[in-house]
Design a protein around this nucleic acid. Structure first.
Lengths: 115, 115
DNA sequence: TCCATGTTTCGAATACTATTGAAACGTTGA
DNA sequence: TCAACGTTTCAATAGTATTCGAAACATGGA
């Protein structure tokens, strides 16, 4: 994942409304939710919602599909994973420097040589 | 971790300069780096750097300590962990809904395994 | 004490972001 | 066809962020 994409993805969820939207979608699971339903659940006005949804989609954090006159949005777990991967992957620069590695890097932590 | 704190933390690293600063610190490890050194490595002007460092510190993503006339900054891995925890913890709402859980929840995912 | 070095604060210019209501667009069902 | 419904676009506005140079502040050594 490119740094620029990471910043975009982080910025996408680093905002009250969008984090709420994203979490709502995440909790809704793979079935997703119609835009209007998201609006109901989050209390965000339609035009604002559309704006944020576009932002999230542009960042690759959500996907959308037309279903009749509804537009169903779903969280993109792939991007989410890539984002988490980037953050943990770069967390130590390959060195056993911190506990951040503990959960994520443990399996591969022993394969590196020591010069 | 509170939602507000999460947004603050995410916003802190959802920015080119700050992500660069943070990653630099993360790669530097627990020893940290002096502000000036960070500036050298990232190419950020002193005043901008100070601004961003303050932002990161306020979000709890970095810590600082005076050392002579240097100020040493270190990444705060605890906050980093909490952030990752929040993102993965809320990723499924407790349900086996997505692959986001795979790397993080694996250890605990086996307890419900019925084969 | 004075000077040199490292860091932060200040002030201001510029650019970007979030929000809203109204209007437009596309789809469905009568 | 028409009207109703769900969603998006548009334009305007208010607020926030980023950046920089210059100046101030703090520390250490002579």
């Amino acid at each position: 994942m490119e740094t620029k994409a990471v910043v975009t993805a982080l910025a996408a969820i680093a905002q009250d409304s969008r984090l709420a939207i994203f979490r709502t979608l995440v909790q809704a699971g793979p079935e997703g939710l119609a835009a209007g339903r998201i609006g109901e659940l989050t209390g965000i006005a339609p035009s604002s919602l559309s704006f944020h949804l576009k932002e999230l989609a542009h960042a690759g954090m959500v996907d959308s599909q037309q279903a009749g006159r509804f537009v169903i949005y779903t969280a993109n777990f792939e991007t989410m994973n890539a984002l988490l991967g980037f953050l943990t992957e770069n967390c130590c620069g390959g060195n056993p420097c911190s506990p951040v590695c503990s959960p994520a890097c443990e399996p591969e932590a022993t394969e590196k040589e020591s010069t």
